[in-house]
Design a protein around this nucleic acid. Structure first.
Lengths: 229, 229
DNA sequence: CAATACAAAATTGCATGCAATTTATTAGTC
DNA sequence: GACTAATAAATTGCATGCAATTTTGTATTG
């Protein structure tokens, strides 16, 4: 029952983590062979994982030319953040109307973990910052909303990896705390205002600089072979 | 340049159309072998197409148990329409602010096609009704929004296939026309009101008749247990 | 006759091999 | 020496084969 991790699932999860933690930077080529070799599976499994990542918008696959970590443009970045504001507002409105029993506790506990990771300068902090927003979506109980928010948060992470400062704390943890307060008070106006400000801050950070990419993917992947957390 | 139709792309497109036009009904099993044979390709290509359909939410794949046309529940249906209202409002707001030059013409032309298909009782009318909303999203110019709306419209179609009346005109074409009028006048309040009404109508239609309760054959069997015939 | 255990068929998960396309390298011409 | 043509290398697209899992059918037992 618990061994639901097919091989392509494992590869998908590992690659996803590696991308979201910015170990694999935008533009990095992801040849099926290399991935298969690194994970000791065939190209078939690697390929399936890449297909799923492509439908998440995390990698781009060009016919007969292979896959690479997606390189969002500034235009796409604007689209992402515009739609993200729309969806996150929806999340907040719903949560102000109805917050699950242990919701606030879960949020506080998550922020604590964010702080720990940040102090330890762990690459996990980058991913955890995004997962705070996914946790918010989960508290609404809508699977579809969770799906969409996950997708858009992933893309945001990619945008920050492409344009943002290296290893910046992507989300101000303070703002997460303020947001939790507003949600506790069921104050949608304040909460929305904080969220907007928060997202604008993230977006602005994205527009500061631009950098470029490095190859050597096999070495990076070895760190992400073993599963979760 | 134009031969970008790989085999799995072709299968994906065909299956998608078949599902959206309700030729393949929710719950229908989709074995890789059958699909491969039907399209004269190998299971590999069929499998890839199924994977993509799964990420669209149009088919469900259970490990080692194969793929089938997805069977959304009433709960999921509510989630879909709730989020759909949110996203379509966003579309309308944007279009009232900025409508492309030939946007109105394109919309009118699309509605004309809808009418033709409806009068011809073509199964295309079902798909065209959904594609009206996708066209609206396209006029915003945001690829991501187009993506999300496409996904959610597809799921809506599936819901209507599962719960709606067979072959009902899914979308009132009148309402499409009214919506175009409001957009032309750049009147977001009226447009939103029409859209809300429109989507509620669709949603209600979904909740009126419940056809066969599909894959849980237990329920079907219950109906046949006592009736000896 | 119902229930369980076992065996056979069907179906998916994965690996490998070959053909096709793309990219890199080399040879030839001006 | 720079530019184009041809060839070689690398990489993907697809088909097929085998092992693993699930499902169906059959026989045995109480």
């Amino acid at each position: 029952m618990s061994t639901n991790l097919s091989r392509s699932d494992a590869i998908y999860a590992s690659l996803r983590r590696a991308i979201l933690e910015q170990a694999l930077k935008p533009g990095t080529k992801l040849p099926e062979d290399s991935i298969g070799d690194t994970f000791s599976v065939s190209r078939t499994s690697a390929r399936n994982a890449l297909l799923r990542l492509a439908s998440d918008g995390l990698v781009e696959i060009k016919p007969n030319r292979g896959a690479a970590v997606a390189m969002p443009t500034l235009e796409e970045a604007e689209e992402v953040f515009a739609l993200r504001r729309c969806l996150e507002r929806e999340v907040i409105e719903r949560l102000c109307k109805r917050m699950p029993r242990d919701g606030i506790d879960a949020l506080i506990s998550h922020v604590r973990e964010e702080e720990r990771a940040l102090q330890a300068s762990s690459p996990r902090s980058i991913r955890l910052a995004g997962e705070f927003h996914i946790l918010l979506a989960e508290l609404t109980g809508s699977k579809l909303l969770i799906d969409f928010i996950s997708q858009i948060v992933s893309r945001s992470s990619l945008i920050l990896a492409r344009f943002g400062r290296p290893h910046s704390a992507e989300c101000g943890i303070d703002e997460h705390v303020q947001l939790i307060e507003a949600l506790k008070e069921q104050d949608p106006e304040t909460a929305s205002r904080i969220m907007d400000h928060h997202l604008h801050a993230v977006e602005d950070r994205a527009k500061t600089d631009d950098k470029d990419d490095g190859p050597d993917i096999t070495e990076i992947l070895n760190r992400y072979m073993s599963a979760s957390e």
